[in-house]
Amino acid sequence: MIPRKLGYALSGFAWPVYALLYTPLALVAYYSLAPAPNMAGHSFHAYHVLLHDGAAFAALRLSLILALCSATSATALGTLLGYGLCRFRSRNARGVLAQLPSLIIYTPIIMPSLVFGISELIFFNFVHSVTGFLAAGLQTMLIAHITFEIPYVALTVFGRLSGLDQNLFEASHDLYADGLKSFLYLVIPVVQPAIIGGFLLGITLSIDDFTISFFTAGPGSVTLPIYIYSAIARKGISPEINALGTLMIGTIIVIALLHFFISRQRERTRQGVFPPPQQTKGAV
C-alpha cells in the first residue's frame, strides 16, 4: 500500500505533530508545578492553594451537575431521535419535509457556537421578560447544553442502528415482541455501546464548551471554564489556573483512555475468547 520510504517520511512528519499537539497541554502541567512564593524548584503549592479555593470547587460542582444532567437528558432524547430516524423514516420520501429532520439535526453541529449562544441569550431573555420563567442560570445552561448534545447522541445511535440487519426488528416482532418490548429487549441492548459512547461524548462536549455556557449563564452560575476564563481576563495566568487546567486535561485523558480500552476489551471478549468458528459439515 504505502511505500516504505514514504512511510518513513510520514513517520518523520507525524511524530513531531503529535508532540506539538501535546506540548501546550504539557506546558500547562509544567507551569502548574511553579514553586511556592519565596521558594525554589518545583512544588505542588498551586494544588494546595486550589484545594482551599471555594469558588473553584463551586464551579467544578456546577460543571459536573451541568455535564451529567445535560448528557443524561440528551442521551434519552437523542437515542429516541436516532432510533426513530433509522426505523421510521420512509426511505423513498422526497422533498423538503423528508429533509427536515436532517436539517434540524445538523443545525446545532454546523452553527457557530457564538451565534448559538447569543441566540439563546436573547431567546431566554425574551421568554423571561414575558413569562417570568427561564431566568438565566443553571436551567438555561442546561437547556442549551442539551440542545447541542442531542445531535451527537442521535448520530452515534443512528450510525450503530443503520449498520444492523434491518430484518432484526422484524425478527423480534416475529418472535412475539411488540413495539415496546422490541425497543427494550432488542434496540436498547444492541445500541448500548452507542448510547454509552453518546453519553460520554455529551459529557465531554458539555465540559469542553465555553462560549455557549458563557452567553447562557446567569450572574450566580459560574462553571469551571467560565471561572478559568474570567480569572485569566482579570489577572492573567496563575499557577493555580494551570493546576486547574492540568486536572481537567488529566481527567479527560484518563476517562477517554479508560473508555477506549474498556470498550476494546469488550470487543475482544466477544470475538476472541472462543475458538474461531469452524466450517460445519452437515451434522456435527
Binding site: 430484518n167 432484526l168 422484524e170 416482532h173 418472535l175 432488542l186
Partner: peptide, 19 residues
C-alpha cells in the same frame, strides 16, 4: 400484528440477534 401470530419466520439473512 406479527407479534400476535402463531407463525415464525426464518429470514434469508437469518437475522440472529447480535447481542
Amino acid at each position: 400484528p406479527a407479534h400476535r401470530r402463531a407463525v415464525n419466520t426464518v429470514f434469508q439473512s437469518y437475522a440472529l440477534f447480535p447481542h
